[in-house]
Computed example of a mutant assay.
Amino acid sequence: MLIGQDIAVLGAGVAGLAVAQALALRGASVTLYEQAPEITEVGAGLQISPNGACVLAALGLDAPSRAMRAKGVQLMDGYSGREVLRLDFTAARPDADFLLMHRADLIGLLEQGVRALDIEIRLSHKVERIHGDADGVKLQFADGSEARHAVVLGADGLHSKLRPMLNGPAKPFFTGQTAWRATVPALGHEEPIAMVHMAAGRHVVTYPLRDGSLINIVAVEERSDWVEEGWHHAGDPAELMRNFANFGPGVKGLLSRVEEVSRWGLFRHPVALRWHSERTALLGDAAHPTLPFLAQGANMALEDAWVLADCLATLPLDEALPAYQAIRRPRVTRVIEAANANAKNYHLKGPKRFLGHAALRLAGKVAPKQAVERFSWLYDFDVTKGSV
């Protein structure tokens, strides 16, 4: 179905680069548009779980060579530094790829795969208007130029031009939480474990990157004010320290080494009701922005990319795009609901916090593997083995 098919992809982030490669590997003629003058990502860390790693492997990309293999996740009492619960990946899933990866390294790996294929990359192309008809889709760019393609896929993120065309305007709502993101040099003895330090109304996630040379930090707090949505708004390291001053010495020691930090407001967007038209479709954050409390944003983008390419390769266009939405929407909705639940559980206060942590400690002693098994529906899901 895809041999020679003319498909444009908007956005060279994780979703866009992955779907461009997945389509080209199936024979499509792909043009990738990116509004920035180069494909780059300053970002910080992300976690690739097995459901995302299997897509990278199916694309022929060696993600483990660019990442650290995570041993597990530790939930910690943010005040005392005492362990509450450990999700041990090495015991529950010894052969699975749980990876700790710098976002720039993932983008670099995906770009390498795209450039190895016959994919036209057009940088500095900011889409202003999209017009679809029965025969194709016309793109109009900020510089006045135009292009026409048979199919257009919107992997253009939170500020997608395609999403409001399909769903109308939508205003996200502020969650009452602000996040801080930074990296600091590692001291050299950190285990490859994602640690979640939980406190009342706040939590801090830390894990090593790049062979243990860096520590990734994401600190989230409940507060009534906010900054604009997006990762690249500069924050004040001194304010970060003040706002998390009641954490234990381990966390405060990390935060004291932060020299540059970004800060952004966390907004909740609804999962798009409509993901496609006759010749267009959304994927990744353009379809379902995800809060960072289950580490699944990049993984869902990778899953979307594979399933969308698979649908287009095996079904006629008028069946492929509806099938893609039918397959993906229920799963991403479940993932987002689970992430939202984590946000609440990390920030428990008063008696609920004491009882919740006690229950988790007991569960960890009685059934230590069960903490990972609870998420088998997420981690063990392999879109590359499915059939449309």
Results as ranks from 00 to 15, higher is better:
residue 106 L to S: 01
residue 106 L to F: 03
residue 107 I to N: 04
residue 107 I to T: 07
residue 109 L to G: 10
residue 109 L to P: 07
residue 110 L to Y: 04
residue 112 Q to Y: 00
residue 113 G to P: 08
residue 113 G to T: 06
residue 114 V to N: 09
residue 114 V to Y: 09
residue 116 A to D: 12
residue 116 A to G: 15
residue 116 A to V: 00
residue 117 L to S: 04
residue 117 L to V: 00
residue 117 L to C: 03
residue 117 L to K: 01
residue 118 D to K: 14
residue 119 I to N: 06
residue 119 I to W: 11
residue 119 I to P: 11
residue 120 E to I: 00
residue 121 I to Y: 02
residue 121 I to G: 08
residue 122 R to Q: 14
residue 123 L to E: 09
residue 123 L to G: 10
residue 123 L to A: 08
residue 124 S to E: 05
residue 125 H to E: 02
residue 126 K to A: 04
residue 126 K to S: 06
residue 126 K to L: 02
residue 127 V to H: 13
residue 128 E to I: 02
residue 128 E to M: 06
residue 129 R to N: 15
residue 129 R to F: 14
residue 129 R to T: 09
residue 129 R to M: 07
residue 130 I to T: 01
residue 130 I to Q: 09
residue 130 I to N: 04
residue 130 I to F: 11
residue 131 H to C: 02
residue 131 H to D: 08
residue 131 H to F: 03
residue 131 H to E: 11
residue 131 H to Y: 03
residue 131 H to V: 03
residue 133 D to G: 05
residue 136 G to H: 11
residue 136 G to F: 09
residue 136 G to M: 05
residue 136 G to A: 12
residue 137 V to I: 15
residue 137 V to A: 12
residue 138 K to D: 12
residue 138 K to Q: 15
residue 139 L to G: 14
residue 139 L to C: 11
residue 140 Q to L: 03
residue 140 Q to P: 00
residue 140 Q to T: 01
residue 141 F to Q: 14
residue 141 F to K: 05
residue 142 A to M: 08
residue 142 A to G: 13
residue 143 D to Y: 13
residue 144 G to I: 01
residue 144 G to Q: 08
residue 144 G to H: 12
